[in-house]
Amino acid sequence: MASESVKVVVRCRPMNDRERALNCKAVVSLDSDRGQCFIEKPGAAEEPPKQFTFDGAYCTQHTTEQMYNEVAYPLVEGVTEGYNGTIFAYGQTGSGKSFTMQGVAELAAYRGVIPRAFEHIFETIQCAENTKFLVRTSYLEIYNEEIRDLLGNDTKQNMELKEHPEHGVYVRNLSMRTVHSVTECERLMEQGWRNRSVGCTLMNKDSSRSHSIFTIHMEICSTGQTLEILNPRFHSALTLCRP
């Protein structure tokens, strides 16, 4: 089904202060209605721009809220119904991954995809009837082909990647923290964020040198019947990845 397929969207950020100071010229343009991205070759005005088509294209005028409602909302809604989902941000250093995924906490209009997903999940939990939820989080980093637990007691320890015949690939002894609110999720996100491997680049003084994966694990159990133990329990996970 189309609703279950992988979708790829592109978001174009405005020029930063460094690029404006260097008098850089914009070479990317978007047609949001058609989901198309056009890239011009600098100094070759006679050549037609390269054209790429995506499931969605968002230019500088589009807000994170609009992008979330159109792209992420259906996926997160599916997670609250028992399906797994992944939101993966990919791009070079300085392309705007952190702004899109985490945003600016102090400004509601600039809140990123991750905090909006937290709010979405707990709003759903608060409104649910005859249902119990157990929500846990994990946060890991892949750096130089090594896996580190960003919420563990020893964040420098190399974790082992294993495979279960029924549950698939997992990280052995990865910390799982139970959370009860958006605030607790954000606190753990911030704790793990401080433990990342970072390094200065020409594009970003605090550039991440790794891939970080924050996962929200949900167990959903209906309590509509007299004997709760007879009711089915659904497991789902929302994985938020940011290289």
Rank of each mutant, 00 (worst) to 15 (best):
A2L: 15
A2R: 15
S3P: 03
S3T: 02
E4L: 08
S5V: 10
V6A: 03
K7D: 04
K7E: 05
K7G: 02
K7P: 02
K7W: 05
V9P: 07
V9E: 00
V10G: 08
V10M: 06
V10R: 09
R11N: 00
R11E: 08
R11D: 02
C12W: 04
P14T: 01
P14K: 00
M15N: 00
M15I: 03
M15A: 01
N16M: 07
N16A: 09
D17W: 02
D17F: 04
R18E: 11
R18K: 14
E19I: 13
E19Q: 14
E19N: 01
E19M: 10
A21S: 15
A21W: 06
A21Q: 14
N23G: 03
C24R: 12
C24W: 12
K25W: 03
K25F: 03
K25D: 10
K25P: 06
A26I: 10
V27S: 07
V28E: 05
S29T: 13
L30G: 03
L30H: 05
D31I: 06
D31N: 14
S32T: 11
S32R: 12
D33S: 15
D33Y: 13
G35L: 06
G35Y: 11
Q36I: 07
C37K: 05
F38Q: 04
E40N: 08
K41I: 09
K41Q: 14
K41P: 00
P42I: 03
G43H: 12
A44V: 06
A45Q: 14
A45V: 07
E46W: 14
E47Q: 10
K50C: 11
Q51R: 13
Q51T: 14
Q51N: 15
F52I: 01
F52G: 09
T53K: 14
T53I: 02
F54Q: 01
D55P: 09
D55R: 07
G56W: 06
A57W: 07
A57V: 05
Y58W: 13
Y58T: 00
C59D: 13
T60S: 05
T60W: 05
Q61H: 13
H62P: 00
T64R: 09
Q66S: 12
N69E: 15
N69T: 04
E70M: 06
E70W: 00
E70L: 02
V71Y: 11
V71W: 11
A72H: 02
Y73I: 05
L75Y: 08
V76H: 06
V76M: 06
V76S: 04
E77P: 01
E77G: 01
E77M: 08
G78D: 14
V79Q: 01
V79R: 07
T80E: 10
T80F: 08
E81G: 10
E81V: 03
E81T: 10
E81Q: 15
E81K: 15
E81R: 14
G82P: 11
Y83S: 04
Y83C: 07
G85F: 08
G85L: 11
T86R: 02
T86H: 12
I87H: 07
I87T: 06
F88G: 02
A89R: 12
A89F: 12
